[in-house]
Amino acid sequence: MRTRLAILMCVASLAASGRALAHHSFAAEFDEKKPVSLTGTVTKLEWTNPHIWFFMDVKSPDGSVTNWGFEMGGTAQLLRAGWKRDSMKIGDVVAVDAYRSRDDSNRANARSVTLTNTGQKLFAGSQAP
């Protein structure tokens, strides 16, 4: 299990080292100068093309909860990066490294997702360099 995790992380870093694909312009929608790292509870997962989207509730220090949406690669791209369609489930707590949208809404393009119950970190298909 430990070996498998290490290998999956290796796959993730290999995949992340090259630019992946968004079907639209990553740069037109998201800003690589606005990195965000957030941890929250998954509320919805859309395992779809051309992009997978998931949503999670993020709790602020003041106790308020904000729902964020994250874009990932398409299904084939994530399957090739080691994901399965049930890698992330509603209710899971995940940590996301992402780039926020240009319009400063609570939407971002995820670069990697760490599943906190297993520690597994997966490449999420960001197109950022």
Binding site: H23, H24, E29, T48, N49, H51, T75, A76, S101
Partner: peptide
């Protein structure tokens, strides 16, 4: 693998911005 455009969430936000 299959890759059909079934969930195009980007269009509206790109156009608005």
């Amino acid at each position: 693998l299959e890759h059909l455009c079934e969930n195009n969430r980007d269009l509206t936000s790109l156009q608005q911005y």
